[in-house]
Amino acid sequence: MGWISTVFVHKALDAAVSLASADEDARGKLFKSVGLDPSAPVDPGAMISDGDFFGLLERIAKLDDRGRFVPVQIGASMCCDDYGAFGLAFKSAPDLLSSYARVERFGKVVTSIANFRVKQVGPSVFMEVVQGGDPRLGLRMTNELALAATMSLSQEVSSEDFFPVAVHLMTERPEVDDVYHAHFRCPVHFGADHDALEVAITAAVRPNRLSDNGMSRFFETHLDNQLSQISDRSELEQGILDQIGEALSEGVPTLAEVAGCMGMSSRTLQRRLSAEGLAYQDLVSSARKSLSEQLLRRTDYALAEIAFLTGFSDQSTFTRAFKRWHQQTPANYRRDTPV
Score class of each variant (00 low, 15 high):
Ile4Tyr: 02
Ile4Leu: 01
Thr6Ile: 01
Thr6Lys: 12
Phe8Gly: 03
His10Asp: 15
Lys11Arg: 11
Ala12Cys: 09
Ala16Gln: 10
Leu19Glu: 06
Ala20Gly: 04
Ala26Gly: 05
Gly28Phe: 07
Lys29His: 07
Asp37Leu: 00
Ser39Tyr: 10
Ser39His: 11
Pro41Tyr: 03
Gly45Thr: 03
Ser49Pro: 00
Asp50Lys: 00
Lys62Asp: 15
Asp65Pro: 05
Val72Trp: 02
Gln73Ile: 04
Ile74His: 13
Ala76Gln: 11
Met78Thr: 07
Lys91Glu: 12
Pro94Gln: 08
Leu96Thr: 06
Ser98Glu: 10
Tyr100Gln: 14
Arg105Val: 00
Arg105Thr: 15
Phe106Gln: 03
Ser112Phe: 00
Ser112Lys: 07
Ile113Cys: 10
Pro123Gly: 05
Phe126Trp: 11
Met127Cys: 10
Val130Glu: 14
Gly133Gln: 04
Arg136Met: 00
Gly138His: 02
Leu139Ser: 08
Asn143Val: 00
Ala149Phe: 01
Ser154Val: 01
Gln155Gly: 12
Gln155Ser: 13
Glu156Phe: 00
Ser158Met: 02
Phe163His: 11
Val167Pro: 06
Leu169Thr: 04
Leu169Ser: 05
Leu169Arg: 05
Met170Trp: 13
Thr171Asn: 05
Glu175Pro: 05
Asp177Gln: 09
Asp177Leu: 01
Asp178Ala: 11
Val179Cys: 12
Tyr180Arg: 04
Ala182Pro: 03
Ala182Gln: 12
Phe184Asp: 02
Cys186Asp: 06
Val188Asp: 08
Phe190Leu: 03
Gly191Pro: 01
His194Ser: 14
Leu197Val: 04
Ile201Phe: 15
Asp212Leu: 00
Gly214Pro: 01
Arg217Gly: 06
Arg217Glu: 09
Glu220Lys: 13
Thr221Leu: 07
His222Ser: 09
Gln229Gly: 11
Ser231Ile: 08
Ser231Asn: 12
Gln238Phe: 10
Gly239Gln: 09
Ile240Tyr: 07
Leu241Cys: 14
Leu241Gly: 15
Leu248His: 10
Ser249Val: 07
Glu250Thr: 06
Pro253Lys: 13
Pro253Ile: 00
Leu255Arg: 12
Gly260Ser: 11
Met262Gly: 10
Met264Thr: 15
Met264Gly: 14
Ser265Met: 12
Arg267Gln: 14
Thr268Asp: 06
Ala275Tyr: 05
Gly277Glu: 13
Tyr280Glu: 14
Gln281Arg: 13
Leu283Phe: 13
Ala287Cys: 13
Ala287Ser: 15
Gln294Ser: 07
Leu296Cys: 08
Arg297Thr: 06
Arg298Thr: 14
Thr299Ile: 01
Asp300Lys: 15
Tyr301Arg: 12
Ala302Leu: 08
Leu303Arg: 12
Glu305Gly: 10
Ile306Lys: 09
Gln315Met: 14
Gln315Ala: 15
Ala321Ser: 13
Gln328Leu: 14
Thr329Leu: 01
Pro330Arg: 02
Ala331Phe: 13
Asn332Cys: 04
Arg334Glu: 01
Asp336Arg: 10
Pro338Phe: 04
